[in-house]
Nucleic acid binder design. Structure first.
Lengths: 208, 208, 208, 208
DNA sequence: GATGAATGAGTGTTCATTCAT
DNA sequence: CATGAATGAACACTCATTCAT
């Protein structure tokens, strides 16, 4: 009677996932401000009030969406970085896996971008704090390349450079591909990734 | 006859500029989706319908806003780049003046960011094409560092590297400071600019 | 057969009483219009649909609430009046016991007031007719002081006065304390009751 | 061009008055909770959004309604009371004019009753404080018979009695006629008023 | 005996736009 | 040159009710 996973939970979870998925699609297509609950419900094929039944409010739905997108990104990048043992390996893995995620998740990307810059929550919270449980926030910190750069410098693997600025530049350079991908779906993002590996591999100097 | 060539009286021009200025402020404060014509008109101190009298529609107002912001950026970056004669000088000038513009135009920056990602025009046009006369588009092309990089390579000033990828990475690294500035108004953007000059100066290799 | 005469199991009756009690609390706290079935169910700790399972509709629930409150009032006032043998005694008992009920049932009072003036049943019935079985209506008639006044006049206990108007005035004066109690929980309602006994004792004139 | 009464003001004021009037009718008919802005607008014959254009929110509309009703009551009762010079005269005038107002303003009465007990404003304000400018609140204080009773006692016109309780009882007795009127439109409220004049005339004792 | 899922009607409110003046 | 009035469409959200389980 009280097994860990109650059967009711499945229906609930599936519907929520379905709604989140459709919401991401709709946001990607028409932009967050135009992505009304009604349009999202229409895409799922249920009544608008059913969406609110499951999430209570649009803010909560956005929470779920943001969490979903962060988790899907984490699921790709973190294992890739962890699989490497050297700082240089981790750096390359960070660049390749992040851009890989961007390549394979165009829709989610558009949605996240639009949501992040348009969303204004009812309470005073920032977008970055939405739907971020402590556990999730902790994992997200691992996506910051600054840690990798500093570890590489401490280990003597990398040369000398302003680590913080380098991290910001790196993130900017990596994220810049999003805009390119969105504008030109045929863009060779993988090639850009390899170029970045080369460029930043040299910039951090180091072993060789 | 009277529509095509309007006398462009002084009052008219002044009012339009005043409205655009207030609109930028309002968008920066509450975000584009919440920036209604009424709020903008309230800030100017005129009736809501007066705004539409001057611009015809909200889309046209957005056109004017985007154009205004691009022009103000051009007015700073283009002369700075043109003042230099070498490719290396132009590259440094591009980085420093762009980041300089970001530092001194926080409000416009917030507004542009919010507008760009939230705005969905009535017709099918993209945001990037809004309010861009041919003459303006031509000038904007000069903001792309790709031209500088290629010129430097042709002149033998720079070494060998994938110019297109380098340009994208550079733009991404430069633009990354916006996010930083917006989140932390006290951030040392100028220092970051100098770091970028160093990092990318090395990356393009060359003269040294 | 099974609808008309339900077994009225203990569980059933207890649950209904529990729901009515919670509904009264919720109505008193947030007002009838804001007292949704969901909020009532939340307070009981059961599902919203369980409330409807027990009462069929919100109108029926209101029926039960009104009946409950009338019965609790009858249980106090009727015995007190019946315990007196003279008209003067009954009059005093009516005043004192009614105000006594008001003093000790503030929450029920707020709820009844809010419900009575806000509720608009689906069918055309008036609020006063809700949940009033014939048997209950008959008993409620005994709460009208008019009968006491007329009996007193017939018995020569009271002097001459327009009995109907005096009854209305008396009910109004007694009920007026509700407003006072609700606004100022510390109000000395008992003292007001004694003053009323004095005032109306004189007004009906009579024996002395 | 700048005469005291601008012509625009007239249209505005007339529309607002029209809306308030219709709102009172609708509230009286279906009760405050069911009196939606849409129903009110339908009765006026304008779009729902036009109501909000004039009042901004439902709360503001309620403000205007309550103020309107209080003012119409003041306009009748205050002059009547002021016209008398003795406390006894003022007391009689208070009773007669208040009941007179009730007789001639049945609809407004139902509306006020329903609104007062159902309305829960967005902010924390009480119903009694809605739409009450200081000036209005000051005038409303003059509707409390307590002042008349106390003045009469000080002047030696009235005998001895608990003035506060007598005032509450008097208000209750006067207000009780509302319920009677609403239930039975043919009820002789004027006769009830005369009875009250007699009953309370004796109760305050005094001169004769 | 009770529940979770879902619904459709209805709520107050915001908005860009039109139009007579 | 500018305004106030008005509108209709859209929005997020609440609610009592239904129904299969």
């Amino acid at each position: 009677m009280s097994t860990a996973a109650r059967p009711e939970s499945f229906t609930r979870t599936a519907r929520r996932a379905q709604i989140v998925g459709c919401a991401i699609e709709v946001i990607a297509e028409v932009g967050y401000p135009q992505a009304s609950i009604r349009k999202i419900a229409d895409r799922v094929g249920i009544a608008m009030s059913a969406v609110l039944y499951h999430f209570g409010s649009k803010d909560n739905l956005v929470d779920a969406i943001v969490e979903h997108m962060y988790r899907s990104m984490l699921a790709i990048v973190v294992p890739a970085v962890d699989a490497e043992s050297t700082a240089a390996g981790k750096l390359d893995a960070y660049i390749r896996s992040t851009i890989g995620y961007f390549r394979t998740h165009r829709v989610a990307l558009v949605a996240l971008t639009s949501t992040a810059t348009s969303f204004q929550p009812g309470d005073g919270r920032r977008v970055e704090e939405l739907g971020l449980s402590d556990e999730l926030a902790e994992q997200l910190a691992r996506l910051d390349p600054l840690a990798i750069l500093q570890a590489g410098q401490r280990a003597g693997e990398f040369g000398e450079f302003p680590a913080e600025s380098m991290a910001i530049a790196l993130r900017g350079a990596v994220n810049a591909v999003v805009e390119k991908i969105l504008r030109d779906p045929g863009y060779d993002a993988r090639g850009y990734g390899e170029d970045l590996v080369e460029i930043f591999g040299r910039a951090v100097g180091g072993s060789r």
